[in-house]
Amino acid sequence: MESALVLVIGVMVAAGVYLMLAANLLCYLFGLILLSNAANLVIFVAGRLTRAVPPLIPKGQEAPLEPVANALPQAMILTAIVIGFGLLAFTLALVVACYRELGTIDSDHMRLAEPPPKSGEH
C-alpha cells in the first residue's frame, strides 16, 4: 500500500513541477496545489499506513487496549492543509489582482519590478 501511494506522490510531484514550469501564473498555481497535496501525502506515508482503530481510550482505561492509528501525522496534515488552503487562496487572490491591474498573467511579461535594461534607463 505504501509503495502505491509513493508512486502516486511521484506522479503528483512530476505533474506539479511540469505545470509550475509554465509562464502562465494560473498553471503555476495549479502545479503548486498538486505539489502541496503531494507534500501532505508524504507526511501521511511517513506516519505509516495502518488499518487500525482511532486513537481513543475507552472509558475507565488508562491506555488504549489495542494498537491504534498514529494520530500525529494526521494532525500535522490537517494543519498543513489549513495553512496551504490559506496561502493558495491568497495566491489566487493575488493572481486575480495581477490580472486586473497588469492585464496579464504571463510571468514573462511582468517586468515592472525589474524593468529590462533598455527601457529601464532614464
Binding site: 509550475m20 502541496s36 507534500a39 501532505n40 507526511i43 495566491t91 489582482a97
Partner: peptide, 26 residues
C-alpha cells in the same frame, strides 16, 4: 503586485520543501 507575485511564488515552493522534509524526518 509584480514583485509580490515573484516573492509569493518562490516562497511557497520553499514551504513545500520544508513540509516534505518534515514528513521525511518524521
Amino acid at each position: 503586485l509584480d514583485g509580490g507575485i515573484k516573492y509569493v511564488a518562490l516562497n511557497l515552493v520553499s514551504t513545500l520543501f520544508m513540509l516534505m522534509a518534515i514528513g521525511m524526518v518524521y
